[in-house]
Amino acid sequence: MKTAGWFAWSVTAVVVVGLVVPLVVVVASSFNPTNELLVPPRGFSLTWYGNIFQRSVFLTSFRFSLLLALGATACSLVMGLLCAVAVVRCRFPGRDLLGAVLMSPLIVPQVVLGMSLLIFLSTIGVVSSLAGLSLLHVILALPYTARVLIAALTRFPVSLEDAAVIHGAHRAKAFTLVTLPAIKPGLVTAALFAFVTSFDNFTSSQFLVWDRTTLPIEIYSYIRTENDPTVAAISTLLILATVAIVVVAERLVGLETVTG
């Protein structure tokens, strides 16, 4: 393909500015010594970073979100892997239907999903529970892990696993010794999707939280009520963490599996 023309390059520049400037502004504002959200900042101070640790809600909700995301990642990864093995390796009635149902949580609007789960949980009498919130996060993450792992397993040549079996490995051992290492990029990407989907989720989670809330929900309500640069400081830390994770993932497995 020929190189893109000046028009494409100019539009790209506009988009890059539109995507980068807000992030830069957040980072810059977080170092403001005053209560204002100003760019350029009036000086340099770490007050607002200190404030994160003063406000215990941010720390507790961060820890809660982290645990929730780790749990949801582990569950959805295992379920997604098992489903992928069944869908790719087995022929059974309803295989195509399963594939479609696995993806269906993706097309339901987040508010609708959150509210539906609330209605369901209150009908069976389980509200305000970790179980309900965890269930929601597994439902949210499962389509991503299943999709990524089905793709990875489809590309994996079964003859490799057969080779391990014929040379003396039990089928289960062949799977862990040969298949799992070979689909590592898929596993990493799937875990990344699952973790981020859970950790960042706001819209449907807000229906199911009780006195324990997640970090995005704390941040959202803080923005709508107090709105001082503490949020900018938290955002800066989370953006840096995201950048670090993405760079590591790029080194580890490349980003092809994310961009498609």
């Binding site: 957040v26 950790f199 959202y220 989370l238 995201t242």
Partner: peptide, 14 residues
């Protein structure tokens, strides 16, 4: 790619 993936993985709230 890095820019877009970082955007993709950053919370919409932020």
């Amino acid at each position: 790619t890095l820019l877009l993936v970082v955007q993709f993985f950053t919370s919409y709230v932020i």
